[in-house]
Amino acid sequence: MTKKKKSGSGFQLGTILALVIMCLFLAISNKNFYSYSNLMSILKQTAFNAFLAVGMLLCLITAGIDLSVGANAVFCACLMGALSKSGMSSGILLMIIGILAGGLVGFINGTLLTRLHLPHPFVSTLGMKNVLWGLALLVTGSQMINTFPASVQWLGLTTIVGFPVSFIVVIVLYIVMHVFLSKTALGRSIYCAGGNMEATRLSGINTANVLTFCYTMSGIMAALAGIVSVGRSGICNGANATQPYDTDAIAACIIGGASFTGGKGTMFGTMLGCLIISVLRNGFTLLSIDSAVQNIVLGLVIILAVLMDVIRAQMEAKRRRLAAGK
């Protein structure tokens, strides 16, 4: 692992540099960027994507993908909204139900992949995205709901001297996940499964369980993101399930060094990726750039990040070939 971190740090240095340059550019072109309130608002925006990206990263490391995270977050928010509207007033209970629902959705995704042998998580999670979109509209009767108790909104709304609690939770979560991925047997198994599923299975690791765990975690993280979104906006809206939240989460992971071929990715890199995306979005707003252009640029950023990953892999392979030829 140490060696990998060494070879990967060059790339992350680049990512840090990109973030710094973006910040400098925005600071020069718009003096509002460096205001405390704007920076805090960036962190607040980051929190939602940061939760989604945790689950996405786990799935990407296993060489999979979870395209249902965004819809899952919206669905969980809508489920909580519908229950609160129908009279459930305990915030704790609502959040527990939301998290359980999100986890269940992830568990189903994982089971479809591992036990029912759907060919690729692309299939199950893309289908699930549509199912969740429909369910979100169904439980809310296609209405926006704003009857959330304050305790549900606490996570997304509260700030400590302006600093969003949601982002503090994100930092703690990322540290815990970092320890989990790098220091536990299960965490290491996730990388192994992504690097070579068959070798991992033949080493006696129950890869089906490892994968199901990742997708279930992804669902739980989506539910947490849903709770954050409720706090931030005070509402839930089933129509939001089609928003490109999944794309943002994927982009954050890939920019942070994860790879579609699996076996790679770190929590630190993913955090950088999340920050880059929210700074980018914030910058667009500050510079009043059309949202259509935002979408174009974000799409290009994702392609660029993947392209860099591909080129890096090719260069590595070439270097190895040359070294072997000597």
Binding site: T2, K3, K4, Y191, G195, N196, E198, A199, K264
Partner: peptide, 13 residues
Amino acid sequence: KGSGLVLGESIRT
């Protein structure tokens, strides 16, 4: 290579 090792991981792992 196909089913014995995770080539991208370290000897340690």
